[in-house]
């Protein structure tokens, strides 16, 4: 942990990304009208370009917290979203019956 995990100048982007699990307007907005969400969080043209290209290296290079790539990937990548789920077969076998 020799270097900062997150750049102070990227805090507005972190705020956008960490809102995804909590705020359906942000989550849905990033899928349907992402420029409006970028406006709301004040992203610059360069910052928007990284997200438009969905380029992990470019997004990382903005100085975001690395863990916050995850909510973005889970929102925008269906394969990641379905893969990162407790398997239904395991859920059914949970002690106490899961749900």
């Amino acid at each position: 942990m020799g270097k900062p995990l997150t750049q102070p100048a990227a805090y507005h982007i972190n705020k956008m990304l960490q809102s995804i699990p909590h705020d359906p307007q942000v989550a849905m907005g990033l899928l349907t009208d992402r420029e409006a969400v970028f406006d709301r969080f004040g992203l610059s043209e360069t910052e928007r370009a990284a997200f438009r290209a969905d380029d992990p290296d470019a997004i990382r290079a903005l100085g975001i917290h690395p863990h916050l790539l995850m909510p973005w990937s889970m929102l925008t990548n269906e394969h990641v979203r379905t893969f990162l789920m407790v398997d239904p077969a395991h859920k059914a076998r949970l002690p106490g019956g899961g749900n």
């Binding site: 972190n14 705020k15 960490q18 699990p21 909590h22 917290h65 863990h67 995850m70 909510p71």
Partner: peptide, 8 residues
């Protein structure tokens, strides 16, 4: 994992 405690 950035749900209850995050960069805030």
């Amino acid at each position: 994992h950035m749900i209850n405690f995050n960069t805030l």
